[in-house]
């Protein structure tokens, strides 16, 4: 895969896919999308990057190892669940804060549910990349 065009193109494509994946993640609660889909899209971008430019470059671009991302995602999901305990609810009960809510609009919703979905995103993203990088390198 030593095409110059592919290598040049994927840098932008991977970035776009990553951006798109975040969009899918954020909108997931109200429209098709969410952590699973976002994570898969994001990892697809990096897989493309790894195929075009090699895993070494992809790893550098990622800054940390994908295993760390996966485990951190699991930890974030766990913390999002535990946060409910602060409010006296049982594990994983969603907690909501509506920033700037008025009589008519709900304002900007911030919730532990979103944090949980971010955890899911990171788990899927990190796990897929762990697998793909390892297979690219070892096989």
């Amino acid at each position: 895969m030593n095409s110059v065009i592919l290598r040049a193109g994927t840098r932008y494509l991977a970035g776009l896919l990553l951006l798109f994946s975040l969009y899918m993640l954020i909108r997931g609660h109200n429209e098709p999308g969410g952590g699973f889909i976002g994570g898969l899209i994001g990892s697809t971008g990096f897989v493309l990057f790894a195929v075009a430019c090699g895993t070494a470059d992809a790893r550098r671009a990622l800054r940390t190892s994908p295993q760390n991302i996966a485990v951190a995602g699991l930890g974030i999901a766990l913390l999002a669940g535990l946060a409910a305990a602060l409010f006296g609810d049982s594990f994983l009960t969603g907690q909501w804060l509506f920033v700037g809510a008025t009589e008519t609009t709900k304002g900007l919703p911030i919730s532990t549910v979103l944090v949980f979905d971010i955890g899911v995103y990171l788990v899927v993203f990190g796990s897929v990349l762990t697998l793909v990088f390892a297979m690219e390198e070892e096989i």
Partner: peptide, 13 residues
């Protein structure tokens, strides 16, 4: 589907 992918990848490896 996601878990199936994990299983598939593990089996392949």
């Amino acid at each position: 589907i996601v878990i199936g992918f994990g299983l598939f990848a593990f089996a392949l490896v």
